[in-house]
Nucleic acid binder design. Structure first.
Length: 707
DNA sequence: GCACTTTATGTTTTT
DNA sequence: CATAAAGTGC
């Protein structure tokens, strides 16, 4: 770690004369450069708190924070701001969102909440359809298009329908005092553009910006960045065009190119020396990525020797794959006296983890699962979050509905329908409607009673929430609403115990966090919504890591297994033939109700099954290098593969299955084209089942040890 | 009208 | 195998 920096790294750290772009190849010491540059800035007279390092994931932010803490001790009130784009957005909106008519305790909706709202607006019951609408709106938002602008560029009736939905959705969210993930970037941008004094304040507050993974920024994020740095343009952007893997989320490499145009004085520094992988691994990675067009030419090199050969293992099916990989890890660890934590199994989709989990558990090997289902997608956590959101923001109708119906308290769809209609007419929140006398003519006393009881309880508790310690308060609420009984009553033993455990963890975590930072429950709920997992202690456990390639970005492991290297999986299918379905009229079934929330949802199941929106297909105006959409998809998949293989330090093993179970049928698979692109032999000559040899080797080793 | 039990359904990647 | 919509007692 105390290795001296190479000249390029040194230059990247010291360059302060203007905007700076660091093209950092995989394993080239990027995080180290950023950390050192922050120190250098402080030494050069920058106030620590005027420096912001913006990352893309929570994990990267946490990592950076740790490194910084190791490097220098700073007082708590004078530390650089290290956070994700979205966390920065939350901060900006909490402090200045009033300029946009947003109250400080606005709610943050996760994508499930948002999808539910969209389903309601469009009056569809089809989840897939709601998701398609959602992803189209999201892409529009990420491209910086307002509902009007989206409508203007809509090219068929489907898109016009979605544009109308987009408009209604925006109005509905505003009514709820809620924002979605995309708004966390879009609204701050709008705010800075429309309010000059706010923009100047932020520009003066953040005197130097460091941005990690610029290649993953979308149009809105790039625009926000430009607003934040202002005319002074004091920033360093760090990225690698070969590791851009978030195109599906609106990220565009175009930003990397535009950086040079928007800032003609941009200093470009390339980090090309790799400190991570042995020669064979690097050679495979380089061979792979030469198949992609390049923006910034760079060639990674290393002083390490060739090391182990990269192995390719064909497997009979996914079970054999899991068994073989796990056995190999066991044997390899034994031979090398390595730690479990030196091993990682990387895959394209979360569902692939299951087989490996089962096998690891069977062999009693410790493992940690990163990526996967986020904490805040779990039903029990979403329940708690709904209560917390409602306490902070009583305009939040979705939170109101969830809280009042979990646990059951005699309020059902009929009552909610009436309440929602009433609230819609009067343009007030459902919560506010509860207390209106006008409601009495619409509901029976029997229906009214639980509503009022609930409303009063929320009022009382919200009052307490202003000062009470968050952990205790939350525990008290859970007790008062009988949440534990609710879980035990509606689920079987082990499931209830499981959920109860995560609830307990959650409460404990909240308690700890609130004590440390002196924050209330409401304060915490905002930063919380952005976390995918409770940050934690499983990083230092000695355990095999199971992770998606996406979630493994930025990490490194001694020995890496990239599994499922098959056509259709890695590169992922979904783009294959794509017949240009030129559906004539698609009845863009728009909303019956305007912005009025009506929870009962009339459910006009579209019997004909008409309007199908081509989901995820980006209306990208073709690439800089004129590649087709399908080619671009493959290029991103190739970069994903590149990210996967460059995680490995000393050994790399790639596996693929001849057949794989999908749903209930077995499908025959072909090896990934990427294997040949890496100049590797896809079909191993070995006749013997690789699982058997690994098993035998392990048994032999164990035998030897006993003697 | 509300709450609970059965039955269809479906899988990229994350803030 | 998990969640979410429709169906059935109370």
């Amino acid at each position: 770690m105390s290795m001296p920096m190479n000249p390029a790294q040194m230059e990247a750290v010291r360059y302060l004369d203007g905007p700076c772009l660091v093209i950092a190849g995989a394993g080239s010491g990027k995080t180290r450069v950023i950390t050192r540059k922050i120190l250098h800035l402080i030494e050069s007279g920058f106030s620590a708190r005027a420096i912001a390092a913006i990352t893309f994931t929570n994990k990267a932010a946490a990592e950076m924070d740790v490194r910084l803490k190791q490097a220098v001790k700073l007082p708590a009130n004078d530390r650089p701001l290290v956070c994700t784009f979205h966390a920065l957005g939350v901060r900006m909106l909490r402090e200045d969102g009033a300029a946009l008519g947003l109250k400080p305790s606005f709610s943050i909706l996760d994508s499930d909440d948002a999808a539910a709202i969209l389903a309601q607006i469009t009056g569809t019951t089809d989840r897939k359809m709601a998701r398609a609408v959602q992803s189209m709106i999201s892409l529009w938002k990420n491209a910086g298009l307002s509902p009007d602008e989206a409508a203007a560029q809509a090219r068929n009736s489907d898109e016009h329908g979605v544009a109308r939905t987009y408009r209604d959705y925006t109005a509905t969210l505003r009514g709820y005092q809620a924002v979605d993930f995309d708004d966390l970037i879009g609204l701050p941008l709008q705010m800075l553009r429309e309010h000059r004094e706010v923009a100047e304040r932020w520009q003066n507050r953040l005197r130097y910006l460091l941005v990690d993974e610029v290649q993953d920024t979308n149009v809105t994020q790039y625009a926000l960045l430009r607003m934040l740095v202002g005319p002074r343009a004091a920033f360093t952007a760090v990225g690698d065009d070969d590791q851009s893997i978030y195109g599906w989320r609106g990220a565009t490499l175009e930003n990397l190119r535009r950086l040079g145009e928007d800032y003609p004085k941009l200093k470009v520094i390339k980090l090309e020396q790799n400190y991570r992988s042995s020669g064979n691994i690097l050679a495979a990675a380089n061979a792979l990525i030469t198949h992609n067009p390049k923006l910034h030419d760079k060639r990674l090199w290393s002083e390490f020797g060739p090391g182990d050969e990269v192995q390719v293992l064909p497997m009979d099916d996914d079970e054999a794959e899991a068994e073989s990989v796990v056995m190999r890890i066991a044997a390899h660890r034994f031979e090398r006296r390595a730690k479990y934590a030196d091993y990682a199994i990387l895959y394209r989709g979360n569902h692939q983890a299951r087989a490996f989990e089962l096998m690891l558990r069977k062999e009693r090997m410790p493992y940690v699962l990163s990526g996967g289902q986020s904490w805040f997608e779990r039903a029990e956590i979403r329940d708690l979050m709904a209560w917390i959101r409602l306490l902070g923001n009583d305009d939040d109708d979705p939170a109101f509905i969830r809280a009042i119906t979990t646990p059951r308290r005699g309020v059902g769809p009929q009552t909610l329908q009436a309440l929602g209609e009433y609230a819609g007419e009067r343009k007030i929140s459902m919560f506010a409607a509860v207390f209106e006398t006008g409601l009495e003519s619409r509901l029976s006393a029997r229906q009214l009673e639980p509503l009022r009881t609930f409303g009063e309880y929320i009022n009382r508790t919200a009052w307490n929430a202003r000062k009470a310690p968050a952990g205790e308060l939350l525990a008290q609420i859970l007790k008062e609403i009988g949440y534990e009984d609710h879980l035990r009553g509606s689920l079987d033993e082990k499931q209830a115990a499981n959920r109860l455990q995560s609830v307990t963890d959650f409460v404990a975590w909240i308690g700890k966090r609130s004590e440390e930072d002196g924050k209330t429950l409401i304060d915490l709920s905002q930063t919380l919504a952005l976390l995918s997992r409770l940050d934690g202690n499983d990083g230092d456990q000695d355990a095999v890591r199971l992770s998606t390639v996406h979630a493994a970005k930025g990490l490194e492991f001694g020995h890496v297994f990239v599994v499922g290297c098959e056509e259709g999986l890695m590169p992922h299918a979904g783009d294959a033939p794509v017949e240009e379905a030129e559906d004539g009229e698609g009845a863009g079934s728009s909303a019956p109700s305007g912005a009025a929330p009506s929870p009962g949802r009339p459910a006009t199941s579209s019997a004909g099954g008409p309007a199908t929106i081509s989901a995820g297909r980006q209306a990208k105006p073709a690439a800089a290098h004129g590649a087709s959409a399908a080619e671009q998809r493959i290029e991103e998949e190739r970069r994903l593969m590149y990210v996967a293989v460059t995680r490995a330090q000393r050994s790399l093993t790639l596996t693929w299955c001849r057949q794989r179970k999908r749903a209930k049928t077995v499908a025959t698979r072909l090896p990934s084209r990427f294997l040949t692109e890496m100049k590797l032999q896809a079909d191993a000559p070995a006749k013997v089942s690789s699982t058997e040899t690994a098993k035998a080797r392990l048994a032999a080793l164990k035998g030897m040890l006993k003697k």
